[in-house]
Amino acid sequence: MTTDRRDGAMLSAMYQDVILQHYRAPQGRGVPDGRTGEALRKNPLCGDELRVGVVVRDGVIADVGFEGRGCSIAVASASMMTEAVRGATVAAARGLIVRVDGVLRGDAADFAGALADLQALAGVAAYPQRVGCARMGWGALGDALGG
């Protein structure tokens, strides 16, 4: 299990510089004032929690942010999430949540342009125990948007 399935390349595919950058300097830190929705996600495996807050105006995510403690994957993924959905319509954000979920399950990732950072999440799919970490911020966003 431990050494045969994974090699160093897989590890560096998960811990890409993009991930480490977002971890060291997360974007969207702090749940925004005047939020119209918020939700808490917990990872029972490690006890980490992330709270996401959104300000939705006229079907558009005017602001989004998160707070809480997490590992590099959880924090980087949440940080990327805030960058990716700020200014997006709620419908587009929901679509993105589904796409990211697919990528974390092993679907091919084809993020480009403003979403290019999300490409890095593809590396997490090889580590099933870490997929839950990457999902926390996105799951909380979905909950915060309601339904």
Binding site: T2, T3, L11, Y15, D48, C71, S72, Y127, Q129, R130
Partner: peptide, 12 residues
């Protein structure tokens, strides 16, 4: 380094 990250890297 978060413990979860440590466990993954140490596993490697």
């Amino acid at each position: 380094v978060h413990p979860h990250d440590l466990a993954t890297i140490l596993d490697q």
